[in-house]
Design a protein around this nucleic acid. Structure first.
Lengths: 167, 167
DNA sequence: CAGCATAAGTCCGCTTGACAGACTCAGCCA
DNA sequence: TGGCTGAGTCTGTCAAGCGGACTTATGCTG
């Protein structure tokens, strides 16, 4: 039971205190995604902007930072280089999402959904995730457990799994 | 239609190029969440670790950075201070999630789900989101559109919404 | 051929932020 | 009185981000 549920005056030690943060899943994810420019770059690639100069100009990333972040994202397997050639120009590279990159969609959709609720603009959402093709309806994320329930945030808790290490 | 779907050799200009990144939802979210320490701090609060010293020691955050991040998270309304008093000690503060903070659950669950797939540990997941109480089953996020479909990442696209500004 | 245009970088010096480690402060207790 | 503890603040060092100038490779134009 997490301390959230405690009603006693005297505090209990949270269960999580006895588990290591060594191999924490969030840390390992943040090692890849955990800075503001990486997310800006991914946003551009997600909306279809894939060339160095276009990404740089739209996201406002310093060139050196963009070079470094693209290399890191390629090394981590989220994007890959893809040669292209404009008529009358030499061959260059653009950057496309891999399957691992595409599978970040739920993360981006969850963030947009949160921001649309808590950081709304007067003019409405500037960007909307939608079901492609004939359907075209707006897409949201929902949490669902394996029994088929759809719990609210208060009904969800993080628990140690098989890979948890004692401290 | 996004360029993803183009099969022609000659490239098209992505639709997104004609929209401003000024008020982008991802940028505005990253202004709040977009650095590695903020996510580490949130992780601790999510798993029930709420006191300055405990957060600092478990997350390995430099004190000064923790002070600054907690203040920012309070100002943005994701957490709030809550006084507590251990027996025989003076009153101190702990940090708890607000409703806005709790509603980041889907973002964290989506990240963990992605990492469990693409950055797995031999020993299994160290942390698992679960439905509290009697159910106890594992929780995942799914994308769902308003027509009730559950599209895969390739079937979702980001489109400009009512608040999109031309460049 | 010389000269120009362009995408995608690299180089440079400055400033900002992260960092480790020492220090402070307030209340409680022996 | 002096010591302990949680929650900070202070300080000097060092890495990273930054804007702006420079470079490189190729194709096009005259």
């Amino acid at each position: 039971m997490l301390v959230h549920m405690s009603t006693a005056v005297s505090e209990q030690v949270p269960e999580a205190m006895s588990w290591s943060t060594e191999n924490c899943t969030i840390s390992r994810t943040m090692d890849i995604l955990g800075d503001k420019w990486t997310f800006h770059v991914l946003r551009e690639v997600f909306v279809g902007v894939r060339r160095f100069e276009d990404i740089r100009a739209r996201a406002g990333v310093p060139r050196q930072v963009l070079t470094e972040r693209l290399a890191a994202l390629i090394e981590r397997g989220l994007i890959r280089r893809h040669p292209y050639r404009l008529p009358g120009q030499r061959e260059r590279s653009e950057y496309r999402l891999t399957q691992a990159g595409l599978d970040l969609y739920p993360v981006l959709v969850a963030m947009i959904q949160w921001a649309d609720q808590y950081l709304p603009l007067d003019s409405g959402p500037p960007i909307e995730p939608r079901h492609r093709g004939d359907c075209g309806e707006r897409v949201t994320v929902v949490m669902r457990c394996e029994a088929g329930h759809e719990p609210t945030p208060r009904e969800v808790a993080f628990r140690p799994g098989p890979g948890a290490q004692p401290r």
